[in-house]
Design a binder for these strands. Sequence first.
DNA 1: CAATCTATCGACACTGTGTTGACTATGTCA
DNA 2: TGACATAGTCAACACAGTGTCGATAGATTG
Lengths: 212, 212
Amino acid sequence: MSDVSGRGRRSRRVSGDDRERLILASAEQLLATRSLTDISVDDLAKGAGISRPTFYFYFPSKEAVVLALLDRVAEEARLIREQALLDAGTDVPELWRRGLLSILETFRQHRVLMLAVAQLVPDSDEAQKLWGRIIEGFVNDSVLGIDSERERGRALPGVPSRDLAISLVWMTERMFHASLTGQEPNLPEDQVLEVALRIWSRAIYGDDSLGG
Amino acid sequence: MSDVSGRGRRSRRVSGDDRERLILASAEQLLATRSLTDISVDDLAKGAGISRPTFYFYFPSKEAVVLALLDRVAEEARLIREQALLDAGTDVPELWRRGLLSILETFRQHRVLMLAVAQLVPDSDEAQKLWGRIIEGFVNDSVLGIDSERERGRALPGVPSRDLAISLVWMTERMFHASLTGQEPNLPEDQVLEVALRIWSRAIYGDDSLGG
DNA sequence: CAATCTATCGACACTGTGTTGACTATGTCA
DNA sequence: TGACATAGTCAACACAGTGTCGATAGATTG
């Protein structure tokens, strides 16, 4: 994943890195209280105990702050996901379930950040690219899973695995997003994983072998 | 669908309705050249040959203009969709195909509007609601189709039909959106319909009966 | 022909962004 | 030690955009 820590500041010693962390923490706190649009650079600066111009010494915009936050979460999520897949061992249905669950958990734990990112994506090329890279990561994992199941003769052939994976991952992103933000129509938070998994199952295997 | 023509203005006779149409037309034209964020109320006003304060006589914000545009397109799309389903007759696979195709065509024909709406949705409750109502319309149609195929014993039972429909419709929205805006990862525009249809088929029937 | 209503806009108040230039610490090395 | 660079800071400025108020012109109607 890209190194965002250098986004928009000159290299520096220590006390400035602390400031940077303070800004990020302040941003997280503020996002818990209101939407990104309603947070001004001044709010961010005040929250970190500095003036607005000083903020610009550390980040080029509030957007960059959110992207730095997202970068951090994406890396953390990658590790959690890796662990989840290791824990599942060789039980294939469990692999799929844990894969999806780890995505859902990341969404859940960083609900407000996800909301802010969703606000950014349509307006910012950089946000769009970063989000795309994260989605791409899920797609690649899924492609590996599909291909391996096809080789074993368990999964249906027909749709190119990457096309299938792209579709299913976007579906999952939207379903989770709608559930967690309350965007109608949506599925209740406690059912969304089961339904998603069922559709993954049918799309890949043609049946409900991933649980039902 | 809701009557948006009264959004934010006092009732009035004729010449003002023309102005309103001029503003809408101006908005459509401007959206073809740059994103909603880069269009100011002043641009909109100038485009319709009026001053900025006069704009506010007709619409409370540029957001309201986009929503009025969307409302119009949604109604038009509903009719096209209805016709498409009539044309399909009783050929069930053709019904599904034409249903999805009419959505794709609407996206295609109003690409720039869809882009503007996507920008609005995360920031505006009203936009979120209207978009939700449009999606809901597709979901309801799909539920009818799924239930009727289940009654005939052709479609797989198991997942509640509304849950299935919500998931598939959101998937389709995201796939089309990614394709038409170039958001990566995506499927090429000329393949996205076939792949979507294949997944609908597997999710509803467990096989590729909708084409392969 | 006065009263009323639609339509219009100049001018204002406000909020937020991003930049400039000056100032202060702090550490470096000649 | 003292000149020098450099990190860090912010008051003040210049903008761009939003939304509102009050005055006014033209049409309509009783």
